[in-house]
Amino acid sequence: MKPATLRSATMYVYAALLLAFMLVPLLIIVPMSLTSGNALTFPTPGYSLRWYHELIDDPRWLKSFWNSIIIGVSATLLSCALGIPAAIGIAWGEFPGKRLIYAIVATPLVVPVVIVGVAAFFFFAELGLAGQKSAIILTHTALAVPVVLTTVVASLSRFDRTLVRAAQSLGAGTGRIFFKVILPLISPGVVSGAIIAFIISFDEVVVASFLSTGEERTLPRMIFSGVRESVSPAIASVAVLLVVFSAALLGIVGWLQSRATRSHRTRPS
């Protein structure tokens, strides 16, 4: 074998091994969660859907799942309500302090999440809202809104502003222009931003661990406290479901984004 061939063969073998290190753990828990036994072992003594049934039959898991959905959807809607107008202002407006505003809005991305959680705990405890869903929704919105802002600003950069002027000259009002002209054209960016925002909230555990107690526990919070006691096959089943759930949602985002760039590239200019 020539040295160059040997070298690239080694490189690909290495790449395959490293990818295996990153992915096999995610895959191996699928058969493990399907165990018919009482403990998490591999190889499994036999296969069954027993632990998935256990999840569905346990009201605490079900309740926490709905808590996560309610919190995730509310945080997503709120992020869009705040993020989309702000994205239009930032993408099209020229005003002093724009960089400062961008910096302020981006702070939730850089502050370590433990500090966010503790700070939110204090803030909402003083307001008497600690342990309420609304406290988690507001904090998750702060964490998710920078992502909505960036994706919407990106799709606005591909937006042809003469369309707005055309609509104005035809007599459309501001609301009508927004819902009938702008929103349909930037919808791929809005939808991917919204999905990522939802996943940020749905997967978030640190803020939830400071702010949610008892009845208001979210799904990640349930996993977090469950793992600290014992790792049961039920935990593995939830993990599998979460992997599948977020992968499916983010698959939609990937598809939307590739479609958006493709249609942009093929658009005659």
């Binding site: 202002g89 930032i90 407006g93 302020i104 702070t107 919105t141 809104v145 802002l149």
Partner: peptide, 20 residues
Amino acid sequence: MALLVAPLVLFILIVFLGPV
């Protein structure tokens, strides 16, 4: 245009930056 950004900035200041 700056008015469109104001609600978000206020929100981040009150709910996030202020508490931190």
